[in-house]
Amino acid sequence: MPAPLLVPALVGVAFLVLPLLGLLIRAPWSDLWPQLTQPQVGQALRLSLVSATLATLVSLVLGVPIAWVLARSTLPGRSVLRALVTVPLVLPPVVGGVALFLVLGRQGILGRYLYEEFDYTIPFTTTAVVIAETFVAMPFLVISVEGALRAADARFEDAAATLGANRWTTFRRVTLPLVAPGVAAGAVLCWARALGEFGATITFAGNFPGTTQTMPLAVYLALQSNPEGAIVLSLVLLFVSLATLLLLRDRWLGRSGAPLA
């Protein structure tokens, strides 16, 4: 292996792995169990997994079509659309949370009607958690899937058309299976991002155990009063997400899967 590649690769791996090692070394292994068995930990973990999974599903339903429009349609202004879709990537998540308030809050452009007509408010609910996570995580999916679509040979879609498949059938039966590894990679990326989401969630959904307190929020607050507890919570989040990703990688992507997890 050439040194100009190997050396930076090793430095990079060390850079990524050492902070995790730091967490492991500083973890209070002796009172790990009492920390873990606090009801709030299980609650936050469950909420995190459920909301990140829901956010990923919503992102798939909305994001894959966006990616298709970006990669395949001849719609004018697609580059503008692409820039808009990726705004959440560069937006500080807290600002994203405020922006969500301005639209979906009870004083928001749309949220106001929900509040006035149905007496329903989105903020401070689990729905708000899913919305905040979707807002921040969906661009990762869109970009992955768009990349996969662009890399896929569009002539397969021509072939499908000559075999009587309309665009929707072509998308379902040909395009989607062809880019499935890219979609899976994007979904995993999206899920991981949603799982770690903090800023937009705590801003738009607030923080309340059981309804809106996800693991990152619990970790952050624990850091204020109980840094060792925060380390334990971080490790739990880390291991659960790693285990999930490795499991999915084997199941979905087989050995030749896309490079993730």
């Binding site: 308030f101 959904a205 309340f208 307190q213 929020l217």
Partner: peptide, 20 residues
């Protein structure tokens, strides 16, 4: 009976300022 336990005063104030 709070709806949210804010991470700091600033976050709590923002929600008041936004009328949420």
């Amino acid at each position: 009976q709070p709806d949210t336990l804010e991470e700091d005063v600033r976050a709590a104030l923002t929600k008041v300022e936004l009328g949420e």
